[in-house]
């Protein structure tokens, strides 16, 4: 049990810049204030584990049309591998997406996808056995359809739809992640796309009805703007809720906790809010 009770709260980088229970109405501005640097820092060492040239070596991939340039254009993120010393310094700006090592062949369905939809896959990543592809948001639906219908892919089961919030990437702060599974080939893939707060992300509910609630949850929790969704309501939070709780800039303390700990303060806050409402 007692692994490290010493620093349980050390690296919550966002709770410093959120002033209490203000509803995160305009998180974009807050996010834009602390950009540590855009992802495109090509010189930085790629993955923490294995620094290697950004052009992923093509192992035995059958189609030669692999858009190497696309892969190279967006090298794996995590630009600061030496972040141990100042843990509070800056929030991470993106996930680690190491390219596949040389000895791991890219699965045929990814290669076929790249051939069929040139430019649709901007990054192929392999980490602890999971394959991930990153697609531009406007081509997501097309790629999803291909992945579902192509016989060698046949991803007929949408395991999960979720998102990750990277506030420093102001324009496209969300990674919307689709975990797909094929019940015929027993293979998995993660499809990722990057979206901003208002970027329309075309819903895949028409491909996988399973995505209906999952996308609703992502909308509820992150405020990702799904379009074409048949029933885009909040799902877990109350219908009249303000804000999207899973965003990194969502305040960790709200009036509820404040009320318990410091009723006076809460009352003051409530009054100011009510007055603001009146105006």
């Amino acid at each position: 049990m007692a692994d490290d009770p010493r620093k349980p709260e050390d690296a919550t980088p966002h709770d410093g810049d959120d002033p209490g229970p203000v509803a995160p109405a305009a998180p974009a501005a807050a996010a834009a204030s602390t950009p540590p640097g855009e992802v495109a820092v090509p010189g930085a060492a790629a993955a923490p584990a294995s620094p290697r040239p950004p052009v992923a070596p093509k192992p035995a991939a059958p189609p030669p049309a692999k858009p190497a340039g696309a892969v190279a254009a967006r090298p794996p993120a995590a630009p600061k591998p030496a972040a141990e010393h100042p843990p509070k310094a800056a929030p991470p700006s993106g996930p680690a997406e190491p390219p596949p090592p040389a000895d791991v062949p890219v699965p045929a369905f990814i290669a076929r996808l790249q051939a069929a939809k040139p430019g649709a896959v901007t990054l192929v990543s392999y980490f602890v056995g999971d394959w991930t592809i990153v697609v531009p948001v406007d081509r997501l639906h097309e790629v999803a359809q291909h992945l579902r219908d192509a016989p060698e892919a046949a991803f007929d089961f949408c395991s999960d739809v979720t998102a990750t919030d990277w506030p420093p990437r102001a324009a496209e702060r969300f990674d919307v992640v689709y975990c797909l599974y094929s019940t015929t080939h027993r293979q998995r893939i993660r499809v990722k796309t990057r979206a901003g707060e208002t970027t329309p992300v075309r819903s895949v509910t028409d491909l996988w009805p399973a995505a209906n609630w999952l996308e609703r949850e992502v909308f509820d929790m992150f405020g990702v703007n799904f379009t074409g969704h048949p029933d885009r309501r909040r799902i877990l939070m109350p219908d009249d809720w303000q804000g999207h709780p899973q965003r990194k800039d969502y305040p960790l303390e709200g009036p509820g906790e404040l009320l318990l700990e410091n009723p006076q303060e809460w009352l003051k806050l409530k009054q100011t809010r009510d007055e603001a409402d009146l105006e």
């Binding site: 490290d4 050390d10 690296a11 972040a83 999960d160 979720t162 990750t164 919030d165 992640v177 975990c179």
Partner: peptide
């Protein structure tokens, strides 16, 4: 299918993102 999607930023002892399917 009980799935966990965990994102680590490599710097902290907390997961950056923790998702349950």
């Amino acid at each position: 299918e009980l799935g966990y999607f965990v994102v680590s930023d490599g710097k902290s002892t907390n997961p950056y993102r923790f998702r349950v399917r």
